[in-house]
Amino acid sequence: MAHTLPPRTPVDPLALGELRELLADGDVVVLTGAGMSTASGIPDYRGPDGTRRVQPMQHGEFVSSAEGRQRYWARAFAGWGRFAAAQPNAAHRAVADLERLGLLRHVITQNVDGLHQRAGSRRVLELHGTLAAVTCLDCGERTSRDLVQQWLVDANPDVLTGLDGLAQVRPDGDVALPEALVATFRTPRCLVCGGDRLKPDVVFFGGSVAKDVVERAFGLVEGASALLVLGSSLRVMSGYRFVRRAARDGIPVAVVTRGSTRGDAETTLRLDALVGDVLPGLVADLGG
């Protein structure tokens, strides 16, 4: 069953004014989620009611199961072209503009698409890593995802034929494929150690964000004048914990996203709106 959001309503001008004042003070840290990239053609995992719409790859399955890795790489191979072709949207560009205006201390993103950097943001902490890189779990060798894609093209020359009608690419770059095709897919191997446990440099569901990354993110939040959450339902603790820390320390928390969030109780200011409907106007008002 398709999930649909309620019709878009005008942004509350009073709340918008409060958000403008919050940003004007500067030293704001931004936490972004999948809602930042939906306008770029990369959907989120959850419906508007917070229910997960598709089952993502699980860390334990990828690490321990050759079949799981085969399924992931076949699907990721088929979806990579469209995922890599995604372009930054107006919200990404607005965040970069706010940094250029000296109003943002840093961006912490839960996304793995690299669109903040491509839009011009320079201070970005990727909480869940990046799909642009691949790491061997056995020897630690790091390789570009584009190079791995070329290996896979060479090893599976016929797979991409006739895949134009596939469902939309998913947040981690993969698409659903027929099991018969997955079963014959040849997975990548490390050129250094020969192992088959090559993993995209991202945190899968069930995995843990590196401790040093978490500590750095906490440090950014603790030094901020405010925490601005953009396009995230905060259903996952890896992002929600920073809202909790900010609220604990008396740091204002502003949220711009459609629908409710897990952090509503800790939120100081909330705008139920698409980030693309809010951020470009704010940049214009603030001198951008």
Rank of each mutant, 00 (worst) to 15 (best):
residue 248 R to P: 12
residue 274 L to I: 08
residue 122 R to P: 07
residue 198 L to Y: 07
residue 189 R to G: 08
residue 92 H to A: 01
residue 72 Y to H: 03
residue 44 D to G: 14
residue 68 G to Y: 02
residue 158 D to T: 12
residue 256 V to R: 02
residue 20 R to N: 04
residue 64 S to E: 15
residue 74 A to V: 07
residue 267 T to N: 03
residue 72 Y to L: 05
residue 118 R to I: 08
residue 183 A to K: 09
residue 111 N to Y: 08
residue 136 C to Q: 08
residue 85 A to D: 13
residue 266 E to G: 06
residue 56 P to H: 08
residue 37 S to I: 04
residue 8 R to G: 15
residue 184 T to R: 15
residue 72 Y to F: 13
residue 237 M to G: 12
residue 44 D to Q: 08
residue 280 P to S: 04
residue 197 R to M: 02
residue 134 V to T: 12
residue 283 V to F: 07
residue 218 F to R: 15
residue 275 V to G: 00
residue 35 G to K: 02
residue 123 R to I: 13
residue 193 C to K: 05
residue 276 G to P: 04
residue 134 V to A: 02
residue 168 Q to T: 14
residue 160 L to D: 01
residue 24 A to F: 07
residue 239 G to Y: 11
residue 39 A to F: 04
residue 130 T to Q: 11
residue 284 A to L: 14
residue 127 L to N: 04
residue 19 L to V: 00
residue 29 V to S: 07
residue 63 V to Q: 08
residue 245 R to E: 09
residue 21 E to Y: 12
residue 237 M to S: 15
residue 185 F to A: 09
residue 25 D to Y: 15
residue 23 L to Q: 03
residue 163 L to A: 14
residue 125 L to Q: 10
residue 51 T to W: 13
residue 198 L to K: 06
residue 201 D to F: 00
residue 82 R to S: 14
residue 2 A to H: 12
residue 109 T to H: 10
residue 21 E to P: 07
residue 25 D to I: 14
residue 181 L to G: 14
residue 79 G to H: 01
residue 56 P to D: 05
residue 133 A to Q: 13
residue 233 S to G: 08
residue 94 A to K: 02
residue 243 V to D: 01
residue 157 P to T: 01
residue 258 R to E: 09
residue 111 N to V: 05
residue 188 P to T: 02
residue 247 A to R: 10
residue 276 G to S: 06
residue 118 R to T: 04
residue 213 V to H: 07
residue 60 G to Y: 10
residue 164 D to S: 11
residue 80 W to C: 11
residue 234 L to K: 12
residue 271 L to A: 03
residue 90 A to Y: 02
residue 70 Q to F: 02
residue 276 G to D: 02
residue 26 G to L: 05
residue 170 R to G: 04
residue 218 F to S: 15
residue 167 A to E: 15
residue 151 W to I: 09
residue 126 E to N: 10
residue 173 G to W: 01
residue 192 V to T: 15
residue 270 R to V: 01
residue 109 T to Y: 03
residue 5 L to H: 14
residue 197 R to I: 08
residue 2 A to M: 12
residue 162 G to L: 06
residue 58 Q to T: 12
residue 44 D to R: 09
residue 95 V to S: 03
residue 60 G to T: 11
residue 60 G to P: 10
residue 26 G to Y: 03
residue 102 G to A: 07
residue 148 V to Q: 04
residue 120 G to E: 06
residue 41 G to Y: 09
residue 20 R to G: 10
residue 4 T to V: 15
residue 203 V to G: 01
residue 23 L to I: 04
residue 100 R to W: 04
residue 96 A to P: 00
residue 220 L to F: 14
residue 263 G to P: 09
residue 216 R to F: 10
residue 205 F to A: 11
residue 149 Q to E: 05
residue 104 L to M: 10
residue 273 A to C: 07
residue 96 A to H: 05
residue 246 A to L: 03
residue 175 V to P: 00
residue 202 V to A: 00
residue 255 V to I: 08
residue 188 P to H: 00
residue 108 I to D: 08
residue 281 G to H: 13
